[in-house]
């Protein structure tokens, strides 16, 4: 398994030498960023059992904060990121404390986090003086990195390809480390049974909050880069459909695995561009695939692979 993942990474590392098309590169870049979102979401959803609808909000808030700090206040991109993450963590702690303190059940939790997320979207949409409202903000600046060989500006598709690949790997490793630690053990217990966890002496509230905060912060990290690659930020970054897309990616890939969401995200990002159909049928096909995946392979692609392996 680990071997296969490393192999995949290797393929990803050399792939740009073979990709000549800018649009394929763009799909890969968006795919990596979506994958990073999906992996971080799965920490909260798959490994802690909390259906958070706040993920898009964490992503969007961070994208806005970084963009505003850089374009309006002239901050350095790399300095703006920690600030944005700090804000996202504070927001996540606030929302999480409320939800977990009141022990909201799974669906209630989803709706309340969605409510907070919508309120944040409406604030972003209407706070014209700072966020430029519905028009969003165009980001012309590209971040650059100081290296011993001179400053490296992320402007070409290839540079973004590697930046986002690194981003994905970082998010992946953070999640892996968290899950491999004592925290991961506690989360597993909580996912299986809240009450049981409590009787075992686990501070359920604390660990849920930790998972929610880490996952949201990682989403914020993706958001920080996203706006600068896309060239614009707009209120749709915080929208409910984006949150649902992430859920679909995770389910397609497989909930109980770390690599599953990566596969799911890459496939769902590429899908609309691979199938050339009229507009109506493309939507219908998207829906049909979603239904098919859920009903025929409820554990996602990874579930299918592992069960094949066990059978063989």
């Amino acid at each position: 398994m680990r071997f296969a993942i490393l192999g995949g990474l290797l393929v990803a590392l050399v792939a740009p030498w073979f990709i000549t098309s800018d649009s394929v590169l763009a799909i890969a870049i968006y795919g990596f960023m979506s994958a990073a979102l999906a992996v971080s979401f799965n920490l909260i959803f798959g490994f802690t059992g909390q259906l958070s609808m706040f993920h898009a909000a964490s992503f969007g808030v961070s994208a806005y904060v970084v963009t505003i700090l850089v374009t309006s206040y002239g901050w350095n991109f790399w300095l703006a990121i920690p600030c944005a993450l700090l804000l996202v963590v504070v927001l996540a702690l606030f929302v999480g404390t409320i939800c977990f303190r009141f022990k909201l059940k799974e669906f209630y939790f989803a709706v309340v986090t969605m409510a907070f997320s919508e309120v944040l979207r409406l604030i972003t949409l209407n706070w014209n003086s700072v966020t430029n409202g519905s028009l969003g903000i165009t980001v012309v600046d590209k971040p650059s990195l100081w290296t011993p060989w001179g400053s490296l500006t992320f402007s070409s598709g290839i540079s973004w390809y590697y930046v986002t690949l690194v981003l994905l790997v970082v998010v992946y490793i953070v999640c892996q480390r968290v899950l491999a630690s004592w925290i991961g053990q506690c989360l597993a217990a909580i996912r299986l049974n809240d009450l049981l966890g409590e009787t075992l002496g686990i501070d359920v509230f604390k660990y849920k909050l930790i998972s929610f905060a880490i996952g949201s912060a990682l989403a914020g990290l993706v958001g920080a880069f996203y706006g600068f690659y896309a060239g614009f930020v707009e209120p749709h970054y915080l929208s409910i459909p984006l949150g649902l897309d992430i859920v679909a990616m995770v389910l397609l890939g497989g909930v109980n695995s770390l690599i599953g969401p990566v596969i799911g995200a890459l496939m769902l990002t590429a899908l609309p561009h691979v199938i050339e159909l009229s507009a109506e049928f493309r939507i219908a096909l998207y829906g049909a695939i979603l239904i098919f995946v859920i009903l025929v392979m409820p554990k996602g692609i990874m579930g299918l692979i592992t069960s094949r392996k066990n059978a063989a």
């Binding site: 398994m1 071997f3 073979f18 990709i19 000549t20 394929v24 890969a28 596969i263 691979v274």
Partner: peptide, 18 residues
């Protein structure tokens, strides 16, 4: 697993070619 990865890689390359 390996086969899947390969398949994905092939799909990406084929997509690029298309």
């Amino acid at each position: 697993m390996k086969i899947w990865k390969k398949a994905c890689a092939i799909a990406v390359v084929a997509g690029a070619a298309a």
